[in-house]
Design a protein around this nucleic acid. Structure first.
Length: 636
RNA sequence: GCUGGUGUAGCUCAAUGGUAGAGCAGCGCACUUGUAAUGCGCAGGUUGCAGGUUCAAGUCCUGUCACCAGCUCCA
């Protein structure tokens, strides 16, 4: 007998060769019905897997992340089968599960249309009804290659050829359809209850733009129709948080056809922006930064010297002045360097932290522009830190602290961290890159920060840590970044005078906290769905008189609130109170003060909060205390 | 940049190849109102732009610009 240890620690005994399916049925009909696959001694397995030795077994349902992945991946196979039935000439590429669903890439002569998608979805539903079993079989490398060749699947051939020599090669068959796949899968196609194909888009084979563009079909699936409906509803709701939409609705910012990628900030958006800048300046002053401002246009030879000409020219705009060549800055570092070089520095001054809210311009490909998230002109909350080598790690830790304070404590964002290493097109030796990369690693370890590694994704002058934030649809955007740079100090012959009276080379750190004000404001808008914390709200209080009898009282209140440093508007129009409230609610103004005859008589205000509703009457002074407290504490 | 899709009033959307329309917003008038939309009226357009087909184009074709989704690339 073999011992099977279950998740809850219970041990059961079965004869050798017992399949997981038998075991799960033994556990009960309900778990058997919900179980999709299992993890056996850490390895994901099909339910048809037969146990030959003692094992720790965890049965996976849709409630498990791995269970969901297996479920969606199996759906992707059904998609591929449907496509092959309807379009026998389609060549299969890859079809993984992704965050909220799956996709499958096909090489087809004609791109799929919306109507095609509907047809394919219908065919998938047929396949589900056919209740086809997912059967696993293994093949030798040669068998696998000839199978893929016989099926006329060149992409699969390529995939097999790239598998390591000793890797077992497995296939899955459902009905007439066979696909190369590591698995595992759900037991049969009928396990997929609700499926929806969402959209189709081009995608390069292996993500390389030099390769052929394939047609990628995105879809999702759930074990219940109601879960699918919920998901689709959530998607719709998420779209209502879109900063591009809220930017216009709330009068914050917008992009006009006259300036693709060049955003406009309207008066209310500027209030938000200025508040962020004010907060930023306070925090940086506290952290020992000095502020500078460097020009937007500088001579081209500066950029040749910095390496931008060689490494970043395609992203830069150029101009000429008096027949001399100039460049519009895509980064602030060369300017910061010139400030550093403007005088001789002693080791006693270091680290020197020069902050700059610097407007940079970058030529981004037209297809990547996205509201305020991805633009061609943006303001980085940049800083360049010139440090002695021994100070570098400590400085990195301090920057991480600041990012955490901003993101987690003040704004309440979820974020994740990535470390990017030396790219192909880079300046400097591997040794120097290793040193810089290790400094970042060590700082993150000191902080106990979990991070993922992006090989070859660093800046051309150094490795970086990136902080990524999520938008309303869960897409992530790089915001904060910390970069260690040994190259620029070399290129520009930077130095400081050490204790020994000799010249030494400082190390440079490039860093941003917000990343770009534009992107950060976009994230902020989506995160709060436009209902900004009071300290950021463009209008903090709206005074709503019930009739024009209270107009003077309302104006008086406005004056007092303005005097207390609050941003106030009064709605003096002859409208019903419900109408005024609705408009203030739609504008997501945090506080409404309703004033009618009662309030005038009692010298009070009736407070309404945008999310808490009617809070009852109070004195104006008490209200001012409440709001100013929220502002000072940056209450979310 | 690439693949596909979409461009009609400030916004959201209608209009068989046959006189461009509605709701909201705006403006005017009436109503003087108690916690998410009062009523009536007025105005608003070179249908993204440029060509073409046609007796006739918002609608069909070509080009172009912008936007949307994804890919590639990045804060």
């Amino acid at each position: 007998m073999i011992k099977v240890t279950l998740k809850d620690g219970k041990v059961r005994e079965y004869g050798p060769g017992t399949t997981l399916e038998t075991i799960v049925k033994d556990l009960g009909p309900r778990i058997a019905k919900e179980t999709l696959a299992a993890r056996v001694n850490g390895e994901l397995r099909d339910l048809s897997f037969a146990l030959t030795e003692d094992a720790v077994v965890e049965f996976l349902t849709f409630a498990h992340e791995d269970g969901q992945k297996i479920y969606r991946h199996s759906t992707a196979h059904i998609l591929a089968q449907a496509v092959k039935r309807l379009y026998p000439d389609a060549k299969l590429a890859i079809g993984p599960a992704i965050a909220d669903g799956f996709y499958y890439d096909f090489d087809v002569e004609e791109p799929f249309t919306r109507e095609d998608l509907a047809k394919i979805e219908d065919e998938m539903k047929k396949i589900i009804k056919e209740d086809l079993t997912f059967e696993r079989f293994e093949a030798s490398r040669d068998e696998a290659l000839s199978l893929a060749r016989n099926n006329g699947e060149p992409y699969k051939v390529e995939l097999i050829e790239d598998l390591p020599e000793d890797a077992p090669i497995s296939f899955y068959r459902q009905g007439e359809f066979v696909d190369l796949c590591a698995g595992p899968h759900v037991p049969s196609t009928s396990r997929i209850k609700a499926v929806k194909l969402l959209n189709v888009a081009g995608a390069y084979w292996r993500g390389d733009e030099r390769n052929k563009m394939l047609q990628r079909i995105y879809g999702t699936s759930f074990p219940k129709q109601s879960l699918l409906d919920d998901y689709l509803r959530r998607l719709e709701e998420a779209k209502r948080r879109d900063h591009r939409r809220l930017g216009v609705e709330l009068g914050l910012f917008g992009i006009h056809e006259e300036g693709p990628g060049f955003p406009f900030f309207y008066p209310k958006g500027m209030i938000l922006r200025n508040e962020l800048e004010r907060f930023w300046r306070e925090e940086h002053e506290r952290a020992g930064y000095q502020e500078i401002k460097t020009p937007i246009i500088l001579r081209q030879d500066l950029w040749e010297r910095s390496g931008h000409w060689d490494h970043y020219k395609e992203n830069m705009y150029f101009t000429s002045i008096d027949e001399e060549n100039y460049a519009i800055k895509p980064m602030n570092c060369p300017g910061g360097i010139l400030v550093y070089k403007s005088k001789v520095h002693s080791y006693r001054e270091l680290p020197i932290r020069l902050g700059e809210l610097g407007l940079v311009h970058r030529h981004e490909l037209s297809g990547v522009l996205h509201g305020l998230m991805r633009v061609r002109a943006f303001t980085q909350d940049d800083a360049h830190i010139f440090a002695r080598p021994a100070q570098v790690e400590d400085e990195i830790v301090k920057i991480i602290d600041m990012v955490e304070y901003f993101y987690r404590d003040v704004f309440g964002f979820d974020y994740h961290v990535e470390l990017s290493t030396k790219p192909e097109k880079a300046m400097g030796s591997d040794e120097i890159w290793d040193m810089a990369t290790n400094a970042l690693r060590k700082a993150m370890e000191t902080k106990g920060l979990a991070y993922k590694v992006n090989e070859g994704d660093g800046a051309f002058y150094g490795p970086k840590i990136d902080f990524h934030l999520q938008d309303c649809l869960g897409r992530t955007w790089q915001c904060g970044t910390i970069q260690v740079d040994f190259q620029m100090p070399e290129k520009f012959d930077l130095s400081y005078v050490g204790e020994d009276g000799e010249r030494h080379r400082p190390v440079m750190l490039h860093r941003v906290i917000f990343g770009s004000l534009e992107r950060f404001i976009a994230i902020l808008t989506e995160h709060f769905a436009g209902a900004f914390p009071v300290w950021l709200a463009p209008v903090q209080v709206k005074v709503l008189p019930i009739t024009d009898r209270q107009a003077n009282y309302a104006k008086n209140i406005e004056e007092k609130l303005t005097g207390a440093g609050l941003r106030v508007e009064v709605d003096l129009r002859n409208e019903k109170i419900g109408y005024k409230i609705r408009e203030a609610q739609v504008q997501k103004i945090p506080y409404m003060l309703v004033v009618g005859d009662k309030e005038v008589t009692n010298n009070t205000v009736a407070v309404r909060h945008r999310s808490e509703g009617d809070l009852g009457s109070t004195t104006l002074d008490a209200f001012i205390v409440r709001v100013t407290d929220e502002i000072r504490n940056k209450t979310r």
